[in-house]
Simulated assay, not measured.
Amino acid sequence: MTTLRVVQGDITTVEIDAVVNAASSAMRGGGGVDGAIHAAGGPQILAACIERFPDGLPTGEAGWTTAGDLPARWVIHTVGPNHRAGQRDRRLLGSCYRRSLEVADELGARSVAFPLVSAGIYGWPKGDAVACAVETLRTTPTEVEDVAIVVLDEESADLVRAEIG
Rank of each mutant, 00 (worst) to 15 (best):
V75I: 11
A162C: 05
R98H: 13
V147Y: 15
D69G: 13
V117T: 04
E145T: 07
G42D: 11
Q8P: 00
D105F: 06
R98A: 14
E154K: 12
S118W: 00
V134A: 15
A40M: 04
Q87I: 09
I16A: 01
R99L: 03
E143C: 05
V134C: 15
H77M: 02
I11H: 00
A62G: 11
G9D: 00
I50K: 14
E143F: 07
L70R: 14
S24P: 02
D89M: 14
E51K: 15
A157W: 04
A23P: 01
G35D: 02
G56I: 15
T136H: 10
T66D: 03
A48Y: 03
L137C: 04
A109C: 07
A47F: 06
R28A: 14
R84V: 13
V160A: 13
F53V: 08
I37N: 07
V160C: 14
N21G: 04
S100K: 05
A162V: 10
I149Y: 02
G60Q: 06
E145V: 06
V150A: 00
K126P: 03
H38A: 09
D105L: 03
D55R: 12
T13G: 00
P81G: 09
L46G: 02
E15G: 04
A162L: 07
T78F: 05
H83C: 11
V112P: 06
A109T: 12
D34R: 09
P125M: 09
V160M: 15
I149S: 03
C49T: 14
G86F: 03
A48D: 08
P54K: 11
P71G: 01
E51Y: 01
A22M: 02
V117E: 12
L116F: 05
L107S: 06
E154D: 11
V19L: 03
E106P: 04
F53Q: 07
E143H: 12
S111A: 09
A40Y: 01
G63F: 09
H77T: 04
G108I: 10
I76N: 13
T136G: 12
T139Q: 15
F53H: 04
T2H: 10
D146E: 15
G80D: 08
P115T: 01
V151E: 13
E145F: 08
A72Q: 00
D55H: 13
T140V: 11
A18Y: 01
R91T: 07
D158H: 13
G9I: 00
L92V: 04
A67F: 04
Q44T: 15
G68C: 01
I37T: 09
C96P: 13
V112L: 10
F53T: 10
V147F: 14
T142K: 03
D10S: 00
S95Y: 11
I45C: 05
G123S: 08
V79P: 08
V19A: 14
A18P: 13
D153I: 05
A67Q: 00
V103D: 05
R90A: 14
T13Y: 01
I50E: 06
R84I: 12
W124F: 15
P54D: 05
